Amino acid sequence: MSKAARTKQLIIEKAAPLFNTKGVAGTSMSDILTVTKLAKGSLYVHFENKENLVHEVVDYQLGRLSEVVRTTMGRQKTAKAQLFAYIDLHLDPMQPPLLGGCPLLNFGTEADDTNEVVRKKVNAVVEGAQQNFRRIIEAGIANDEFKPDWNASEFATKLFAMVEGGILMTRVAQNNQAMKLIAGVLKKEIEENAA
């Protein structure tokens, strides 16, 4: 990796937690300069403007989250264990996998009305997660792990929406009661659909 590529990656990595914690609107280029300890000119050599940096940071953060989820679920041997692993990964939103919380929620809620590029990036990951859950459930049905009449698409949407909603509720309330309840409800439905 060239020096320029390393510097660009350093900027993205240092900026990512700031944007994820303070939001796009709340993070200034001065904040980025402070955490990277770079001169203004050096920053603008790599990123024409804040919007270009935001797009790269969003890709980076969504990629990191996807990798954590993939790795966590990939350690499991059964479809049921994979679904449980996803739920357990998010069981304590006060200690999230990425600093600042869920980038899907953070970037998605900020960008839904203000940044079409970021909205589309977040939506692609949301849709991809639901497709992945559906495939896992369908594989579990094919392997006689789950009942054949379980609606994989419906539960995939429910799983994603309830976990993300639980993350929001927990972080806003500053307690984990909602997520514990949600995790229990989801796991119960998975158990009820086991073959």
Rank of each mutant, 00 (worst) to 15 (best):
K120S: 11
I136L: 09
P148N: 08
L168P: 09
R119I: 01
E116R: 08
E138W: 06
V122D: 06
A124R: 03
D144G: 08
T157D: 15
E127K: 15
I136S: 10
G140V: 06
K120M: 04
V118K: 02
R171W: 03
Q130L: 10
D144T: 05
Q131D: 10
V126H: 10
F133L: 02
A152M: 01
N115D: 03
R135V: 08
R171A: 07
R171D: 08
I167V: 09
Q131W: 05
A142I: 05
K121V: 00
E138C: 07
R134L: 14
A142M: 02
V118Q: 08
Q130H: 03
F160D: 10
V163N: 06
R119C: 06
A152Y: 01
E145L: 06
E164S: 14
K121P: 03
G140K: 04
L159S: 09
R171G: 10
I141E: 04
R119S: 04
M169K: 13
Q130M: 15
F133A: 02
E154T: 13
A142W: 01
K120P: 12
V126C: 06
Q131A: 10
N151S: 12
E145C: 09
A124T: 04
I136N: 04
D144R: 00
A129R: 05
L168Q: 15
S153N: 04
G128Q: 10
I167E: 00
L168S: 14
K158M: 12
G165D: 08
A139T: 11
A139I: 00
N132E: 12
V117L: 13
L159P: 04
N115I: 00
P148C: 11
N132M: 14
I137V: 04
N115G: 04
F146A: 14
A129T: 07
E127T: 15
R134M: 09
I167M: 03
V122L: 15
A161C: 07
K147S: 05
P148D: 12
R135I: 00
M162E: 10
I141N: 02
M162L: 10
A142D: 00
G166N: 07
L168A: 09
F155N: 09
L168N: 15
A161D: 15
A124E: 06
P148F: 03
V125G: 02
E127G: 13
E138Y: 07
G140W: 00
K147W: 05
A124Y: 02
F160E: 10
S153Y: 01
E138A: 04
K121D: 01
Q131I: 13
A139M: 10
E164Y: 08
E164M: 11
A152Q: 00
V122P: 07
M169G: 12
K120T: 10
D144H: 13
N115Q: 04
V118S: 12
E116A: 11
I141F: 05
T157I: 08
G128L: 05
I137W: 12
I141D: 05
I137C: 07
E127L: 14
